[in-house]
Design a protein around this nucleic acid. Structure first.
Lengths: 230, 230
DNA sequence: TGTACATCAGTGAACGCGCGTTCACTGATGTAC
DNA sequence: TGTACATCAGTGAACGCGCGTTCACTGATGTAC
């Protein structure tokens, strides 16, 4: 039997992803969860902290899985390619689908909405709590491309983040179009598996060699690892 | 002197971008624009159609500029590279800053919010009105990469779209981090000029030669177009 | 073992507030004859 | 030119509604002596 608190969390994450934070009322949540309206404030204090709780629960599942994937990468002693690092994202994202129907989509929706939040209180909350895992990921990526300037790395990371969140949060619309235009159903997993090599190619791009002088597809595998790890 | 209608549009686009559609009340708009509350419904009918009007005005400015850029590309008879096509986006976006402070950021914010919209009534509206210019852009891109399968082109286009909208809509936060971490101020234009070659490299990636190996995989580009149009 | 009190999980009803929208109305300008 | 009517742009006040939150209260379980 699920507790009232869990019932609220389960329904809230679904409705938040479907309708957004401010378009989802506590009355919608409590009605669907079949609990008393006042119990949200009893268990969570306010709507704001409920949003944080929903977000945090998802984020924990995701970061735990991602940590495991990065552990496996640390154990392997072959030289890392960009695509190896970006591929660590595949499992943690697709596994979210096991937790609830379209879990990955729901999570990315929440991420995107949190990001778009005006006051940004979720973004600040997330940055504080999950800074360390982001740093670990960045450093792994750095070992694959030691020549990349920190600023360039920073921007590329956020370019990629945008693609991931935007595409996966809106995957339902994209899947619809894809199906009507190409008669082709695609799963979240297939989307990620297209996205990862695409982004890996972009990451491997050497901005010191002006574009057009070399075929980018030839650059892709290029590695230039320096002696030291860190 | 600006008319009441224009005053409303000007203030609304600013507040919508700052706070989102549903977090911006008509009272906020009319107070800041110094017009009567009822005049929004008088001129626009409802809040929903006001949102569409704001969105449409921005979109028109942008698509006009983009058309001009693509005209120039059509005139040049040298062979087009991916980066030439993606570069057509730079001016139309940066020029939005001339219309109002941070015009590009405001526009991308609106785009992102429209995209995240639950009911998607703005997205549907936009798809109907601006399908032709999107098609023209896609076809230009196709001439640079004739080997790319339509499905792969579709996905790459949306991966890129995600990066553009997400990064530029959230550029304020990113600029802040960039400034505190790297002591470096960046303009929207500089962000785009980093993003365009990054994305061009990704677009030029040949997915038939899987990353890191030389082995071919035929599934990826597989198409199944039916005879009729949809 | 019995009694008193504390804690916990939940509840039903109400609170005040801000929201989008409506409506009767005003005053200026344009048009017909 | 004068009068009657129509159109337009705007206004002030009110409408009902749904919202997050609060509050007094209940009943079950745990704990101290």
């Amino acid at each position: 039997m699920t507790s009232t608190k869990e019932k609220i969390l389960n329904v809230a994450e679904e409705l938040f992803a479907d309708h957004g934070f401010s378009e989802t009322s506590l009355r919608m949540i409590t009605a669907k969860a079949e609990v008393n309206l006042a119990s949200v404030n009893y268990h969570f204090g306010s709507k704001k902290t409920l949003i944080q709780a929903v977000f945090d629960r998802f984020m924990l599942r995701f970061t735990n899985d991602l940590s495991l994937e990065m552990d496996r990468l640390d154990e392997a002693d072959s030289e890392l390619q960009v695509i190896d690092v970006l591929s660590t994202l595949i499992k943690p994202i697709t596994q979210l689908d096991n937790l609830r129907p379209d879990g990955a989509g729901v999570f990315m929706n929440l991420l995107g909405r949190a990001y778009a939040e005006t006051q940004g209180h979720i973004r600040r909350f997330a940055m504080e709590h999950y800074a360390s895992i982001l740093k670990r990921f960045t450093q792994l990526l750095h070992t694959t491309s030691p020549n990349l300037q920190p600023t360039e790395m920073f921007w590329r990371l956020h370019f990629m983040l945008g693609s991931f969140i935007f595409t996966l949060a809106g995957h339902e619309a994209l899947q619809e179009i894809s199906e009507s235009d190409f008669d082709q159903k695609v799963s979240i997993e297939e989307i990620i598996k297209r996205l990862v090599p695409f982004m890996s190619a972009a990451f491997s791009f050497d901005s010191n060699k002006p574009y057009g002088t070399t075929q980018a597809s030839d650059d892709v595998g290029h590695k230039k690892l320096s002696a030291g790890e860190h």
